[in-house]
């Protein structure tokens, strides 16, 4: 059987979207899918090492989640990499705009990736956008 490929594009910096993206990525990765996550736009600043930026709740559910023991989205992305076949790729354009280098980002992130490479890599896979 061909390997199932799941791709996740995250451009939002809100808690609910990051949480859902991390859940899809981690569960797909531990279920044997080859997972590629592309972090761009408002999602990327949250993955700068030591950042004070926190993902704000978008609505009622996000507020509720903040008061419960929901697995942290960064931990889920990291587990996707550690326990499965997942790559979490920072968008090179967003990095350029922010002026950050690869070593300023969380350690479990992969290489800076441009859209051309990402599109080529994920051709034929299911794509989730958040």
């Amino acid at each position: 059987m061909a390997i199932e490929k799941t791709s996740v594009v995250v451009i939002s910096g809100t808690l609910e979207r990051l949480q859902m993206a991390a859940m899809v990525a981690s569960v797909a990765a531990v279920s044997g899918h080859e997972v590629t996550v592309f972090l761009s736009m408002n999602a990327l600043p949250l993955f700068v090492r030591g950042t004070a930026v926190r993902a704000p709740a978008e609505g009622e559910m996000g507020v509720l989640m903040q008061s419960k023991q929901v697995p942290e989205f960064k931990m889920l992305f990291e587990q996707a990499v550690e326990l499965g076949e997942a790559r979490i790729l920072p968008c090179s354009m967003a990095m350029d705009v922010m002026g950050v280098e690869r070593d300023q980002l969380e350690g479990y992130l992969g290489e800076a990736t441009g859209l051309t490479k990402f599109l080529a890599d994920v051709q034929g896979s299911q794509v989730w956008t958040f």
């Binding site: 859940m23 569960v27 531990v30 023991q69 929901v70 697995p71």
Partner: peptide, 18 residues
């Protein structure tokens, strides 16, 4: 206990490796 989806699943997977 106390953790929400997919917390318990991730804990199981980590434990399976051991």
């Amino acid at each position: 206990k106390g953790s929400f989806c997919p917390g318990p699943l991730m804990e199981l997977i980590a434990a399976l490796k051991q």
